[in-house]
Design a protein around this nucleic acid. Structure first.
Lengths: 147, 147
DNA sequence: CAGCATCCCGTGCGATACTG
DNA sequence: CAGTATCGCACGGGATGCTG
């Protein structure tokens, strides 16, 4: 990942390995809970704009706070464009920029891998759980559903 | 990343909009700080195995705890295979499984996007910062409500 | 309607110390 | 050498309330 220059410009050897690493920084963004979903929803609507309330409706479970924060973050990164209608009450519209659309392509690849392979991860987990079951049981301390 | 379950009032919209969503779950994994780097390092060594200490050397900044945790997590997910040499002291070797290698391909796409576009995100941020500079200048930064 | 402010809890992850 | 156990703190992020 640290491909290009990245010559540890600060000599920070012991703490953060390479805060400059673009991949890490991207992962930090798309790794936040709602970012990728927001991008997806906006991409589905693209090139149309989507209003705040509509976005919220299409992202079940998100709070205003997080939707607002997520959109601000995306806007700051130049991934979405924000348009405010100076009415009362105000209407705010969002849409993906070209950069945002290009990210959506990458995200689609991730999504595709997930849909194709997460089941394998699940079964690997199941096997591991089963093995742990037969081994030394430290105590009944597994957050099992129900019981 | 996505914390605990969070009893959100989610409907039966079995889309990518709930904690069951494979994409979210994948992002939660690759979003953790060291996972993607570990996969990358192991992929670069593939098909050879890499020992714990060697991995640590190739991942500047990581602690034993986190390396251990990361590898356990990857092993549990069936992404890496673990082999213990029953010597004293023990030597433990790790290598990517086929599943892990397939994930590396997806990660490579993410990396590629990052290296190609993070600069644009940076300049978008810079522009935004500059605009914020000309706006409300934070002085005492303390509104002091009430009195 | 859109969005900021406040409170608060869970947890990712770093530092440190101990064991086989 | 490889791994586990413990503590501590910063931070993501959910719930609630206020404003223009």
């Amino acid at each position: 990942m640290t491909s290009s220059p990245a010559r540890t410009a600060k000599g920070a050897r012991g703490d953060l390995f390479d805060p400059e690493c673009p991949t890490r920084r991207l992962l930090d963004r798309i790794g936040t809970k709602w970012t990728s979903m927001a991008v997806k929803v906006l991409a589905e609507a693209s090139p149309d704009e989507v209003r705040f309330a509509e976005l919220r409706r299409r992202m079940p479970g998100i709070s205003q706070k997080m939707l607002s924060a997520t959109l601000q973050s995306l806007a700051r990164d130049g991934l979405v464009a924000r348009r405010v209608e100076p009415t009362v009450p105000p209407r705010v519209h969002y849409r993906l920029t070209d950069l945002g659309l290009s990210l959506e392509v990458a995200l689609a690849a991730v999504r595709s891998w997930a849909e194709e392979h997460m089941a394998e991860i699940d079964s690997a987990n199941a096997i591991d759980d089963a093995r742990a079951e037969g081994a030394v049981r430290p105590r009944a301390a597994r957050p099992v559903r129900g019981t």
